[in-house]
């Protein structure tokens, strides 16, 4: 099935922010991930690329501690994923269309929401302000969420994710629906963020351009790890293998909720 082009060496140095060792995860009879091994060096920006249903979000949720692997283990900043998240070391930015823009809040209120879960408003003020400065949100921090542009909302969401001092930032499809100038601004923001805080970033996308242009290393996922390394390894062959070869597979077994049945019962 897969001519495993596994370029990933074993995770080596002790200063890896994230270590994924031999991880497999399935949902029912659908294997989302098989035998994934990769390390994310502290301070690097790793791009996770792959088709829809290729296991990108599953990998992120394993690192977040939302899911547990059936095989293998995940280590985040030297702890279990759940411990790391409880310690406020992991910031997550989901797709920005999950927010209710009719909610009455300013950008600053939004940034403070996770902090307020644990501390009083007075104790949070300083952390909120430093997060506002980190993403250059000062000029729109008092604007209501409904009045923010897409890019501003995204900045605020990133500030929210790192406000508690996160050392690992997980970004799931951050540039969907963002135009080219917006993507450049976004990359500048990540550059600035990493140079100021040294935060490790894992960025998930199915948009090749977002990832190839801006990440230190790339992991190509389609159930198995097809490539883990420098963006220059993204040859047309690899892309064809990751995106096309398995797109056909998806129609048979990849779509959850009866896709497999429909495929096997359909007259050919």
């Amino acid at each position: 099935m897969h001519e495993g082009r596994d370029h990933a060496g074993p995770p080596t140095s002790g200063d890896d922010a994230v270590v994924v060792r031999g991880v497999s995860k399935s949902f029912g009879d659908i294997n989302a991930l098989e035998g994934i091994t990769l390390g994310v060096t502290t301070g690097e920006r790793l791009g996770v690329l792959g088709p829809n249903g290729g296991g990108k979000t599953t990998l992120i949720r394993l690192i977040q501690g939302d899911l547990r692997p059936e095989q293998g283990e995940v280590e985040v900043l030297g702890r279990t994923p759940i411990e790391a998240r409880r310690a406020g070391l992991v910031g997550v930015v989901g797709q920005k269309n999950s927010v209710e823009t009719s909610y009455p809040a300013t950008a600053r209120d939004l940034i403070g929401m996770p902090l307020l879960l644990r501390r009083s408003a007075a104790d949070c003020r300083e952390q909120i302000e430093s997060a506002v400065r980190l993403v250059d949100a000062s000029d729109f921090a008092d604007r209501p969420v409904r009045g923010l542009s897409g890019g501003q909302l995204q900045r605020a969401l990133i500030a929210r994710a790192i406000a508690s001092g996160a050392e690992l930032l997980l970004l799931d499809e951050p540039t969907v629906g963002v135009d080219a100038p917006g993507q450049r601004l976004f990359n500048d923001l990540l550059d600035q963020l990493q140079s100021m805080t040294g935060v490790t970033i894992i960025l998930v996308s199915h948009q090749l351009r977002t990832i190839a242009a801006t990440c230190d290393r790339i992991a190509c996922l389609n159930r198995t790890l097809h490539l883990h390394g420098d963006p220059s390894g993204l040859t047309p062959e690899v892309l064809r293998e990751v995106f096309e070869h398995d797109v056909a597979d998806l129609f048979v077994a990849g779509s959850p909720g009866g896709g497999a049945d429909a495929g096997s019962e359909a007259p050919s």
């Binding site: 939302d66 409880r86 997550v92 989901g94 927010v99 996770p114 307020l116 879960l117």
Partner: peptide, 19 residues
Amino acid sequence: RHSLSFWAFDESGAEAFGV
């Protein structure tokens, strides 16, 4: 109020922070 507000604003975001 804090968890309820966070959840009302952004369900999946709040979940990621343990709500």
